[in-house]
Computed example of a mutant assay.
Amino acid sequence: MEVLDKQTINIFLSSDDIYAKYIPVLLESICSKASKNYNYIVTIADANIAENTKSSIANSIKLYSNFKIKYVDINNLIRKYKDLFVTFAHFTVSTYIRFFIPDILRDVNKAIYLDIDLLINSDISELYEINIDDFIVAAAVDACYARELYYNKNNEISYSENVLGLPKGVPEFNAGVLLINLKKWREENITQKCIDKLSEIGTPRVLDQCILNSVIKQGHIYKLPVEWNYVWHAQLEDLKPITESSAFNGVIKEYNEKIHQIKIIHYTSSVKPWNIYGTHKDIHVLSYLAEDWWKTASKTGIFTQLLTSQLNHNRTHNEKANINKVKRIYLFNLRFFKVKKSQNFKSYYLFNIPILKIKTFY
């Protein structure tokens, strides 16, 4: 039965052209599982995304009539705050645009913000339907920073309490998945408070995430279960219980319990599914979480491009490698990689898709 006058769910993304090429995979994971009882508007904060990338993004939703893409040019914001928006490592200035979502979506009172390096394993409307009328954001604990806080890594306790002003022992939430009460955000003037705090701190350790944690008070944060933002870096760090009485063990316990119930995988750190299959030492830990991303990518029109890019990446970073050696890297680390032998050929398959055929001489 067709639902008339469907409610609209607003989803917000922010990207430059480097990360935008992975948006079709994220969108495929969202669209394929999203309830048909809603319409969805995906607003993308555009930091010079190329037209061919936008074409790929448009193609990724063409089968889903209840999804619409909108772009908002953010170059003026970037220029205005270029001296404040410091970046390092794999972060880009697009991450700071989270501060301005209530200004960009002026007529919207509730929205979902998503990082690009995510894979949605569940119906996104379930997240939207969470009641946050009395909160500014809903967000999940960041297990990696909880771990750093416990061990006081890099003097994290002093930074957390004295710089960010967090209560003792309270870890940061991860800002890669946010359900936002835009109306309450505006009422509390959070955008200006974030700009002021960023100006005060200068170079926060986790950029805008630190600022949001500092500005939004604990009583205004709805604690999402970790399955809504399961940071794979937690597995990379190999989290283990410390003592029977440690509050940190509660975070570890939740992560271990939810490993097979993940609603959103968040590929945190500089190690991503699209660059993992090289010589990274933790591939044995991460490969099983990367498989879902590649399976989803195989359903998009950019799959061949992504695969070629991965192979070229491996070849560029190892000049002695030939195509056979690169393929062996995939073979040893991907359970979904298959090789079929015939009398004179070896054929390589990824998700039963033929990707390479090599003549043999033995």
Rank of each mutant, 00 (worst) to 15 (best):
Asp134Gln: 12
Pro167Asp: 08
Ala139Tyr: 02
Ala175Gln: 04
Ile190Gln: 01
Asp142Asn: 15
Ser160Lys: 09
Glu156Ala: 13
Ser125Cys: 11
Leu207Trp: 05
Lys183Gly: 07
Val141Cys: 14
Pro167Arg: 14
Pro171Lys: 10
Ser125Thr: 08
Val177Lys: 02
Ile180Ser: 00
Asp133Arg: 09
Asn131Phe: 01
Leu149Asp: 09
Asp142His: 11
Tyr145Asn: 04
Asp133Cys: 06
Leu182Arg: 01
Leu164Ser: 07
Asn189Ile: 14
Glu172Val: 06
Asn189Ala: 12
Ala143Gln: 06
Ile195Gly: 09
Thr203His: 05
Gly169Asp: 04
Ile130Leu: 13
Asp208Leu: 05
Val141Trp: 12
Ser199His: 03
Ile132Tyr: 03
Ile201Trp: 00
Leu207Arg: 10
Lys197Glu: 15
Val141Lys: 05
Tyr128Pro: 01
Glu126His: 03
Asp208Cys: 09
Ile157Gly: 01
Leu198Ala: 03
Leu198His: 02
Lys183Trp: 07
Ser158Met: 12
Thr191Gln: 13
Ser125Phe: 04
Ala175Tyr: 02
Leu166Asp: 03
Arg186Pro: 07
Phe135Gln: 08
Ala175Asn: 15
Lys193Pro: 08
Gly176Tyr: 06
Ala139Asn: 06
Glu156Pro: 11
Asp208Ser: 07
Arg186Ala: 02
Arg147Lys: 15
Asp208Met: 05
Leu149Val: 08
Ile136Asn: 11
Leu179Met: 10
Trp185Tyr: 15
Asn174Thr: 15
Glu200Met: 06
Ile201Cys: 00
Asn189Gln: 13
